[in-house]
Design a protein around this nucleic acid. Structure first.
Lengths: 194, 194
DNA sequence: ACGAACTTTCAGACATTTCTGAAAGTTTAG
DNA sequence: CTAAACTTTCAGAAATGTCTGAAAGTTCGT
C-alpha cells in the first residue's frame, strides 16, 4: 500500500499547486466545475495514477466530491481506471497525450453544444416562414446552420489527420494562403464541384 | 415612435421563441449567461434594431437586467448602438455577418481563457524543476503550452484569410491531406524552416 | 455468509450567480 | 434651469450550482 493513500497528507509542490488552481478556474469556463478541473489538472501532471483518497487529500475536498468528479471526467472520456495487483483501490490517470485530450474535449463539446443546436436549427428551418419577420429570422438561422455544419465537418476532417500532418498544417501558418492558391491552379477545373 | 417600444407587449413568434431560448441555454455554456444569450439571439434574428424596452418586454426580464446585458454584449463587441433621428431611445442591433460573430466570439474567448493560461504556463516553465515529480509535471505543462501556442497562432492565421479563402479551405475537407502531400513535394527543400 | 475495504449516492448546508425594481444619473428640448 | 424621457447602478431577493459527510451499496477474501 502506498503511503500517499492514507488520508490527510499527499502534498503538492507550490508550483504544481498554481497550475492545478489555474486549471480549476479555467475548467469552470470549459464546461466542468472548479474541483473537476483541479482533479483533472492534477492527474495530468502526475506520472503515477492516483487513488480517490490521494485526490481528496491533495485538493482538500471531500471523498464524495471526488467520486462525482471522477464520474464527470469519465463521461468526458478523460480519465482511465487502473488496478494495481494486490490493492483493492481504484487508481485514476489522465488518458493519452495532450493531442488526445484536446481532441476529446473538442469532440465532447461538439456533441454537447453544437449537435443539439444544429438539430434545433434544422427543425426550425424545415417549417415555412409565417410572415415577413420570420423570413429574415430564417435567413440568419440558415447562416448559423451553414457555419456550424462547415466547422463541424472541417473539425471531423482535422481529427482524421495524423498528429504529424496536423503539426505540418499548423506550422504552415502564413503559408496556407499560398497553398490555397496552388490548389486553385492545380484543381481549378473542378471548382464548382464540392 | 414605434408601437413596439411601449412596455408589456412586443411578442415573438413561437418559432423565434424556441431559437431564442435554445441560444439562451447554449450561451450560458459559452461565457455569458442565459438572458444575455437570449438578448443576443433576439438581436441576431431581428431585422430592425430593438430598444432596451423591446428586449425587456420580448424576453420578460427587467429593464435593469437588459442594461447589464447590453453592457456585457458590448464588451464582447457583439452589438452596436443606433440612434433614430427624433427618437431619444437607443436602439441595439447585432454586429456584422455570422462569420464576424464567430470570429469575435473566438477572439474574445482566446483573450479571456487561453492568453491567461499561456501566461501562467510560461511563468511556471521558467523555473527549474525541484524534484523528479516536477520534471514530469513540467513536461506535461510544456506540451500544453506548445499545443495552445500552435492553436493560437493557427487561429490568428485563419482570421487573416478572407471569408472566401476560408470557405475554400473548409470545403476542401478530405482534400486537405492530398494538398498537404502536394505541398510536401513542392516545398520539401524548406522542410525544417518554419 | 460475513466483514473489511473500498465506492457511490444524496439531503441539506453553503457559495455563487443572476435578477429585480427602486433610486440615482444623464441627456435633451424648451 | 426644469421637466420629461430615457439609461445605469446596486442592494438584496431568488435561483442555481457546489460540497460535505453520513448512510447505503459493492466487491472480494476467507
Amino acid at each position: 500500500m502506498s503511503e500517499s493513500s492514507l488520508g490527510g497528507c499527499m502534498e503538492i509542490s507550490e508550483k504544481n499547486q498554481s497550475f492545478v488552481y489555474h486549471f480549476g478556474e479555467m475548467g469552470s469556463k470549459w464546461g466542468f466545475n472548479r474541483t473537476v478541473g483541479q482533479m483533472y489538472a492534477l492527474l495530468v501532471i502526475s506520472e503515477n495514477a492516483l487513488s480517490a483518497n490521494d485526490l481528496a487529500s491533495a485538493l482538500s475536498i471531500s471523498r464524495g466530491n471526488v467520486s462525482m468528479g471522477i464520474k464527470e471526467l469519465q463521461s468526458w472520456q478523460l480519465v482511465q481506471v487502473k488496478h494495481i495487483p494486490g490493492d483493492r483501490k481504484e487508481y485514476y490517470s489522465a488518458i493519452g497525450s495532450v493531442w488526445d485530450m484536446a481532441n476529446t474535449v473538442f469532440e465532447e463539446r461538439r456533441k454537447r453544444e453544437v449537435d443539439p443546436t444544429l438539430s434545433v436549427l434544422r427543425n426550425l428551418l424545415l417549417e415555412a416562414p409565417q410572415d415577413e419577420s420570420e423570413v429574415y429570422a430564417q435567413q440568419r438561422m440558415q447562416d448559423i446552420h451553414d457555419l456550424l455544419e462547415m466547422v463541424t465537418s472541417w473539425a471531423a476532417e482535422l481529427q482524421r489527420l495524423s498528429p504529424e500532418q496536423l503539426g505540418t498544417l499548423m506550422k504552415l501558418g502564413a503559408g496556407v494562403s499560398k497553398i490555397l492558391s496552388v490548389k486553385q491552379q492545380l484543381f481549378s477545373k473542378s471548382k464548382d464541384q464540392d
